[in-house]
Structures are given as C-alpha cells and as structure tokens.
Write a protein that binds this DNA or RNA. Structure first.
Length: 570
RNA sequence: UGGGGCGUGGCCAAGAGGUAAGGCACCGGAUUUUGGUUCCGGGGAUCGUAGGUUCGAAUCCUACCGCCCCAGCCA
C-alpha cells in the first residue's frame, strides 16, 4: 500500500521526545536500550487522546529497535473492570500495535510493592497514619501555606511494621488508616507533602480477587512498575510533571532502576470531549448509545464509525508532540480520514433522498447491466455491473425546478450524465398538488451515450448518481456530525452537556442503494459517490435491514458556493 | 504574595545567534464521467510585551504580561 505522505515515517523533523531518546541512545544511557510502555487504567474505553500516547510509545520503540509493553495500571478496584481490559487490548491491536508476550498488570506487582513499602518503613521513610481523609486534607495546607505534620508521623519502626501488617491482615476499616511516605510537609510541591502510599479498601479486585484489602495508590505503584519492567523512557501527559519528583524520590529511596520520564501535552480535539470521566457520563446518562457510539471519540466508536486505524496513526504523526496546550481542529482528523479512504474505499451508488425518474423512451421491460469502476484510485479494484432500467431514483437535490446559474444538475429541459449510464434530459415533472413537492421526473435518454460518452462530442456539465428503482434495495443511513456544537466544550467544565449538538446524528430511512451493497462487509469502507464515505454498521445492520454509518462526507465545494451565495444575499 | 509548565499566521508545528520549514484551514486556476481526487498558484507571522547584549536575536540576558497543571485514601 502506498504510504500516506503525512505518515510519521515521512516526517523530516523529530519531536522533542524523539530527540531526547536519540540523544540518550547516542550517549549510551540505559546501555543504549529503548523500552517504552502504554499504561492504561481499565476504567473506561480508549479514546483518540490515548491513540496519541500509544503511537508515541510504540513508534519510539520501533524506531530505536526497542520494545513496548502493554501494562494495566489497575490499582483502584472500585473503578476497574475486566470488560475494560478486553476493550482496551482489542483497541490497541486494532490500531495496529503488538506487545508480544509483554502484557502486564500493576496488580501483578502488589507483593513486590508491599515488600518495598516495608523497606521504606524500616528505613524510617514511611509511616502508618490514623488520620481520616478529611484530616489529611486539613493537614496538607494550601498552595501558599505549608502543611502540618501528622501526629502519627513519628511512630516507631516496629509500631509501623506491626500496624502495616495488620492493615494487610484486614483488621482495619476502609479509610481508617493509610501508609504514608515521610517526605516534606512544607514542600511547594503538594505531591511531596507526605503522600499516601496505601489505603484500606475491602473491595475485590478484577484480577487479584479478595487477596488484598489494602491497595497501593497510583503514585506509589506507577514508577516502580516501570522500574520492574526495565522501562527506559516513560512518556506521560503534562499533569504528571508535578509527580515526577515524587517518583524520583521513591525510586531513589528504593535504589532501583530509574527510567526517564518525559511529559507531553495531551491531545484536545475540537467539538468533542476527551475526558474519560465525561465520556462515562455521556454513556451512563444515555446521551449516546454506548462507548462505541459512532459519535464517540473512542477508538471503538471511531472503528464503528468507519475510521481506518491507519488514518488515526497518520493523524497522530502529523499533529506533533510538544508541551504546549493545544486544541486540534476536527478538520485535521477528517483530512486524514478522507486521504486514507479515497485510496481504499470501493465506490458505490446510493441515493439518500430518492426522487423517481421515468425514462419515457426506454422500453418498459428492458434492462441492462452497465459497467462501473470500483475505485478510480486503484485499478486493481476492478469493475462491477450495475443494473439500469426505465425507472430510476436520483437524489432530490439533483433537480431544481428553477435552478440558479452555476447549478450543473437537472432542471426543466436540462441534460445531465448518469454516472456510467446515459445522458438524460428532463422533459417534464410532476408535483404533489398539496405540498408543492416535485414527486417525479419525466426524462428521455440518448441511446447513443451508453456508458456516459457522447459520440457527437456533446458536453454535459453535470454527472449525477442514480439507482435502478426496481433493483435498488432499501437501507437506513445515519449521517453523523460532531457530538458537540462548540469548538471547546471542555472549557465549559461540568456544563459541557449544554453544548451537545442536537444534530449530531440524522437518520434517513428509505434510502435506495445499488444491489451490490446487499453484500457489504462490516469493516470495509465504501464511498457513496458524490456524497461521502460510509460503512455498514457492525451492531445494528441486519440482513434485509441494512444500516450504514457516514464516516465523513466528501469535500463539497458546491455547498460552499451555495453557502456563500446565501451569506451575500443577507 | 507556593511549586511546576507553556507562549511562532485561523488551527497545529519546525527552527535553538545569521536574517521565519511544513501540514490543516482559507482563496484562485487547470484537469476531471464523483461540484471528489490530482495538479499548479495565492494571501496571511517581524516569533506574548518591553528593554538589553551582539555587526546580527524567534533563538542569549532582564523585567513584565498571559495561559495551563497541582490542595483525591482517582489515574
């Protein structure tokens, strides 16, 4: 397959992380090894923001003869479920990445983490604290005032060891005690004000079951998990920059392998939201049909919507990686999708809003098969035959009773080409007397123009798509638009629901599509000519009740002209 | 008035002392049996601001300004 010109490999510049890794390699740091990881928490589905992190992590390893692990940071049994680990592994694989036999879980390290915690207690660097959550907060101080040390901070090593063991043993209630690192209650970095390492949680875990009733916090588990796996470069988003000094402190206190953490700006995409918490809310409150709703920015939603994984990778490669907070326009993603689909999608004819056309001089019982090209961008895709007959359907928008100057389609007395068919001329039309709607077109065809060429060299400005009425099959088509109506719904905070786009989906029943689409395959992209890219819905499409999702429309310069004309008329 | 980051065209993003890449978007035009694709071409940034160093600064220094993150026993 031809590589997209914007594929990561095609870039001539390196981002700052690639530069940092390359210089580490050149300097022989970590013995020249590069080993990255993608560490999701199984508490929701992956979205395109995660794709950016995945592409970064895996490509960093790929270009440096290194490896990438997939590790679930499953330290909070309250929010995590195995259904999420299944969805996540499927999504990473779909994106096109492999982790070999290196699928890990932070929960696999619970015993090791416990032992290390004991080690810190023995070194006088951690203590069991009896303060409640509220009390800990009150002791923490504020952004501008130092905190106050816990009254339990100076317990003896023996007492701490005894208490910690009994925490593990299940003697204490949830929230009654924590194990805390003894660092600095006056630090300007709040993460260093004696952070909690363990909390009591009598909750069963999706993998370790009821083996534990104390669980490590993310901060205590994350850095050490990377260390255990021998990770060399830990990439993560900007909000963890403040945590790096803490991870450094833990790793140094333990004297274990110390990866280099590098933070980058998380992806923000216009007209959508990339916050797991908010996405969960959309799912739970029924604003969407599920995590895989085609309007969702989740990888499963985008897959169902018809986005090729390669286009997502291209996108991640072209937006760059930096530390600047940014909001990428949806148009940039759509560009990548169209560029990909234009090369790969099979062209088909589908009439979304049918208008009947009767070819008056075409014999009643006659029908024939016309040859149509499957993909003009790919000769190997070959051709197919489409049936033609006296009665057809064309798009309602391809006829105007009183067309403006630059309208190239059908109008009274006008002639157009039916794609891969004949030239037809409109000789009359019928209207519904009540509504005034045009309900049927009367046309004549020129038998000499079969296939769309006029032997006399006659030119026609417009080419429109069509389906044979008697052969076409009905389908439901969903036209998707952005989930949110404003560019940056995230800026609205918890009021983001107010910005939901009421027109994020328009469902069309009774569309007529060419017969070959009866055999449409889930997972294959189709271009409905002159309209856009579509895919058969993987969930709701049934034999005899086809459902297609619009992935993205084709660029439409006519729509621009119309829009501009309207604007200038005002 | 704590700590940590970041400020280059509408949106992204290279450049790291030698006189502003590239992509998306936008606007023209050519080609076209998709008003698609492709192909040409175009407009638009003195690089947050003000000083300073230098023959020369987006790049170095100083001071301001603005934006983001942090007060979960979430990750």
């Amino acid at each position: 397959m031809a590589e997209a010109k914007n594929a990561p490999e095609a870039r001539e510049t390196q981002n700052f992380i690639e530069v940092a890794v390359a210089s580490d390699r050149a300097a022989g740091r970590f013995d020249g090894r590069v080993h990255t990881r993608f560490p999701p928490e199984p508490n929701g589905f992956l979205h395109i923001g995660h794709a950016k992190a995945i592409c970064l992590g895996f490509s960093l390893a790929e270009t440096n003869e290194g490896l990438t692990n997939l590790r679930f940071d499953d330290t909070n049994p309250i929010k995590e479920e195995s259904k999420y680990v299944e969805a996540i592994t499927e999504d990473v694989r779909w994106l096109g990445y492999e982790w070999g036999d290196r699928l890990y879980y932070a929960s696999d390290y619970f015993e090791q983490l416990y032992e290390w915690a004991v080690k810190l207690i023995e070194a006088g660097k951690a203590f069991v604290c009896d303060l409640s959550a509220e009390e800990i907060r009150a002791h923490r101080g504020t952004l501008t005032e130092p905190g106050i040390e816990s009254p339990f901070r100076n317990r003896s090593v023996d007492e701490n060891l005894d208490l910690f063991e009994r925490m593990r043993g299940g003697e204490f209630e949830d929230g009654s005690r924590t194990l805390r690192a003894k660092i600095d209650m006056a630090s300007g970095n709040l993460n260093l004000r004696d952070p909690v390492m363990y909390r009591v949680l009598h909750t069963s875990h999706h993998r370790s079951g009821d083996q534990w009733c104390i669980y490590p916090t993310y901060d205590w588990a994350h850095g050490q998990s990377d260390s255990i796996e021998g990770i060399t470069h830990s990439t993560c988003t900007l909000e963890f920059e403040n945590h790096r000094p803490l991870y450094d402190w833990y790793l140094d206190a333990l004297g274990v392998h110390h990866p280099r953490q590098i933070e980058f700006a998380p992806l923000n995409l216009s007209n959508t939201i990339l916050s797991k918490r908010k996405l969960l809310q959309l799912v739970n409150d029924g604003h969407v049909s599920g995590w895989d709703d085609p309007r969702m920015p989740t990888l499963s939603g985008m897959r169902r919507r018809g986005f090729p994984p390669t286009s997502i990778r291209t996108f991640c490669g072209m937006i760059g990686v930096g530390k600047q907070a940014s909001l990428i326009e949806l148009a940039q993603l759509e560009f990548c999708v169209r560029e990909d689909l234009n090369r790969t999608a099979l062209r088909r004819s589908a009439v979304l809003r049918p208008l009947k056309v009767v070819i008056e001089n075409y014999p009643e019982e006659q029908e024939e098969k016309l040859e149509a090209i499957n993909n003009p961008e790919d000769d190997a895709a070959g051709t197919r035959k489409v049936p033609f007959s006296r009665e057809l359907y064309i798009e309602r928008s391809d006829f105007m009773e009183d067309p403006p100057k630059k309208y190239f389609r059908l109008g009274p007395g006008r002639e157009v080409r039916l794609r891969y068919g004949y030239f037809i001329r409109c000789v009359g039309f019928e209207k519904d007397e009540r509504t005034g709607d045009v309900v049927e077109l009367r046309c004549t065809y020129d038998p000499e123009t079969r296939g769309g060429h006029a032997p006399d060299g006659r030119k026609v400005k417009g080419t429109i798509h069509w389906v044979s009425a008697r052969h076409a099959i009905e389908a439901t088509v969903r036209l998707y638009n952005s989930l949110f109506a404003c560019p940056d719904p995230g800026a609205l905070g918890d009021a983001f629901l107010g910005a939901l786009n009421p027109d994020s989906v328009e469902t069309i029943h009774g569309a007529r599509v060419e017969p070959s689409l009866a055999e449409a395959e889930v997972g294959l992209p189709y271009q409905f000519e002159r309209q856009g890219y579509y895919c058969k819905d993987s969930v709701e499409s049934k034999r005899g009740a086809l459902v297609f999702n619009r992935t993205v429309s084709l660029r439409d310069s006519w729509a621009k002209i119309v829009k501009k004309a309207r604007a200038s008329r005002r």
